[in-house]
């Protein structure tokens, strides 16, 4: 074999294990559930292969599924909004602070290393009937009986914000940190107030980071089922909970396939819109 031929073959040898894994464990399974979603789970529990539209009719037509899909998107949107509201100023502070930037960044990365389930359940210690807040209010004499503050939509959103905020701060920080501060100084020296130069120079330049953080918060938030199970009540199910129910509890796998694909389609469209206008590189910057 010539040297050139070996040079050409080598990268493929290196890529084969990873590409094979992703193909067999992600792409083929995704194609499989597309096919599977047209099968039918019969009353006996067996699958009837074929081309049935029943699952899709149910998933797309049933008001139950539609309402939960809409409320999932609403919860994800509210979460993303609050992440931006809380995260942007914090990211700005870290990016523009002198000195202890490394420590501030490390602190920001810490939550990534702390288990999601621990962070979620930690709110039970704060808001639970015998939690910190109730204990404090009772000790102060504000209330005599503990109040049930948990297990509603607000606590689901709270848990999601707590989980997703670091993604927002990190992405905004990455883009703010990349902005040349001379631009702000130039705007200031030309007579802009600090607020004006922020609004007209810094903010627009940091929008890609804000968008990347927003996309991550929204997609991750809309795809979760653990937070509603831990911090939500029986009526706070999100769309991924329906998928979990169908697959694990009801064992209706064809319906579960259709529901998963619906979630993938909705979130996939968002990712594609984002990719069309901003490209994936910004997102990778924040992740890497």
């Amino acid at each position: 074999m010539s040297v050139e031929a070996r040079e050409r073959k080598q990268p493929w040898i290196l890529l084969t294990p990873a590409l094979t894994s992703v193909t067999l464990l992600l792409f083929v399974p995704l194609l499989f559930i597309v096919v599977y979603s047209f099968w039918l789970r019969t009353a006996t529990g067996a699958d009837d292969p074929g081309f049935h539209l029943d699952n899709w009719q149910k998933a797309l037509g049933d008001a139950f599924y539609r309402d939960i899909l809409l409320s999932t998107l609403r919860i994800a949107a509210i979460t993303t909004f609050f992440c931006a509201l809380m995260g942007y100023p914090a990211a700005y502070f870290i990016a523009r602070s002198k000195g202890n930037k490394a420590i501030l960044l490390l602190l920001l990365m810490l939550p990534f290393w702390i288990s999601y389930i621990i962070r979620t359940m930690s709110w039970i210690n704060i808001l639970g009937v015998s939690g910190a807040l109730n204990s404090a209010l009772m000790a102060l004499g504000v209330i005599t009986e503990p109040i049930q503050m948990l297990y509603n939509e607000a606590t689901v959103i709270l848990g999601l914000i707590h989980y997703l905020l670091p993604f927002m701060v990190l992405n905004v920080f990455v883009s703010l940190d990349g902005i040349d501060t001379n631009l702000e100084d130039a705007a200031n020296s030309l007579g802009a107030t600090r607020w004006q130069s922020f609004l007209n120079v810094t903010l627009p330049l940091s929008l890609p980071g804000l968008a990347a953080g927003g996309l991550l918060c929204f997609v991750l938030g809309a795809g979760t089922y653990i937070t509603p199970l831990v911090l939500g009540g029986p009526r706070d199910a999100m769309f991924a909970n329906l998928v979990f129910e169908a697959i694990i509890t009801q064992l209706n796998w064809p319906l579960g396939s259709a529901l998963s694909l619906m979630l993938l389609a909705v979130l996939g469209v968002l990712v594609m819109i984002y990719n069309r206008y901003l490209g994936m590189t910004q997102l990778m910057k924040g992740l890497g």
Binding site: L25, L30, I33, T224, Y225, V243, L264
Partner: peptide
């Protein structure tokens, strides 16, 4: 791909 979807696809396949 949302992790739930990945999980379902891999499990069922």
């Amino acid at each position: 791909v949302p992790e739930v979807v990945l999980a379902v696809a891999l499990l069922l396949f």
